[in-house]
């Protein structure tokens, strides 16, 4: 049986989890289902936006199925949605209960500090993984169903990248919460980092001499390899997973060493 604290964490977060899962599922389903109606209008939209804007938004073309999925699900709104979910859920593991005081009674149970942190991040992380996997799972059904001409393996690669991206930022958010115990810090630092690295990836792709900044951006490892056209890129995905793992481990270590609720 799973630890009581893991079950408790899921139970306390259940409304948020259902809300985020529903939102992400609806977003994916609605956008993808519009594909066939959208085809006629796509040309117009493609022409309406200057090439620089398309590049900034990470949109190569909106006419091909891969381009359409990239533009709708994987470039801006999709990652934005799941990252918001990741950051708020990660803030709930330690920072929020520490601030509102509810953590004391959870910590007063017979678990070590590290076990507490692992169970909290494990519960939130598994829920988060489930939510981040929703677009991929739905696309596996919708893409063949509406007859989009794109290899499912490529869709799976991009979807796996989305999950890995979420892990990396969730790890950072958890680390900030574990270190500071402040929800505002988690939201501000991780949110700021997400915006900054998104810009770095976008601008790095556009400006000559600035290509290197993309290497600093998790978004580059997620979508910079163009998985919808080129398929799997394990080293890039592994980089994101590693970032998530390292920050999570660091968070557990820091949490074990500091005062709580000061």
């Amino acid at each position: 049986m799973l630890p009581a604290l893991v079950r408790k964490t899921w139970r306390d977060d259940r409304l948020a989890l259902i809300g985020w899962a529903g939102g992400v599922a609806a977003f994916t389903a609605i956008y993808t289902s519009f594909y066939s109606q959208f085809q006629g209008a796509a040309e117009l939209k493609q022409d309406a936006l200057p090439q620089g804007m398309l590049d900034f938004l990470g949109i190569a073309d909106m006419l091909s199925p891969a381009g359409y999925l990239q533009a709708t699900i994987f470039s801006l709104v999709g990652p934005l949605l799941v990252l918001m979910c990741a950051i708020t859920l990660a803030a709930r593991t330690i920072a929020r209960p520490e601030e509102d005081g509810g953590m004391e009674l959870m910590l007063a149970n017979p678990v070590s500090r590290t076990a507490f942190a692992w169970q909290r991040v494990g519960a939130a992380g598994s829920a988060l993984t489930g939510i981040a996997a929703i677009p991929g799972i739905l696309l596996m059904i919708i893409v063949p169903w509406i007859g989009m001409d794109i290899p499912l393996s490529n869709v799976a690669a991009a979807s796996a990248g989305l999950v890995a991206l979420v892990w990396s930022f969730a790890g950072v958010a958890f680390l900030v919460g574990a270190a500071t115990g402040k929800r505002a810090s988690v939201l501000a630092i991780t949110g700021g980092l997400a915006v900054a690295t998104y810009m770095a990836n976008a601008i790095g792709g556009m400006l000559d001499g600035w290509h290197w900044v993309r290497w600093l951006s998790p978004f580059h490892y997620f979508i910079g390899t163009d998985p919808l056209h080129t398929g799997w890129h394990p080293p890039e995905l592994l980089t994101l997973v590693l970032l998530g793992a390292v920050t999570t481990i660091a968070g557990v270590i820091v949490f074990d060493r500091r005062d709580i609720g000061v």
Binding site: K8, D100, G102, L105, A108
Partner: peptide, 8 residues
């Protein structure tokens, strides 16, 4: 605890 707050 002196400041009683329950989780959930």
């Amino acid at each position: 605890p002196g400041e009683l707050v329950f989780p959930g």
